[in-house]
Amino acid sequence: MNAIATAVVAEQFDDIEQQHSAAKLGMWIFLATEVMFFGGLFLAYTVYRFTYGHVFALASRHLDDVFGGVNTAVLLFSSLLMALAVRAAELGRRKQLVRLLLATALFGVLFMTIKAFEYRKDFVEHLVPRFDFRWDGPDAANAELFFWIYFALTGLHAIHVTVGIALILVLALLASAGKFSQNFMPVEITGLYWHFVDIVWVFLFPLLYLAGHR
């Protein structure tokens, strides 16, 4: 058992513990960069909501908050499944890990399909800028600005969710081959990434869908 364990430790590390804490620290720093990456868009949202608050509230009422709410629940549940998957990996329960990973990916895909339906509904209601955007209320320009920021934020988030789903499926494949029996760190790292993507949505939902009372 010990021979396999040392094979797992990379040559530049002294022991598995150092390797784990290094991987986690590296991942958390990467998540800090992601916070700043989304931060640029959140700044644009904040500044334009401050200058065009009235129109932003109007425009956000055109977004269907049922889609947003259900999607938040879906992503929260997939976060739960991911946490359970990481626990299963720690305990070395291979079959349970694979099942939970697939379930997490399934809910991720569910989130994307709901998103796709919502985008189609927005398109039908002429809310997609540059694609025959129609706005009958006051100054269409600022409303179009709101929808640009909406599509930029949710689009960037959707890309991150897709990357997350791909990572989880790869993990599920490797897990079924028993790769994570000693070193469950890749599962923990992907779990951290998935929870981060969920946190971003936790902020997106109230800011975009619930901006200003219904």
Partner: peptide
């Protein structure tokens, strides 16, 4: 239009 004055 985030930086375009014509769009606000």
């Amino acid at each position: 239009g985030i930086f375009d004055p014509k769009l606000g």
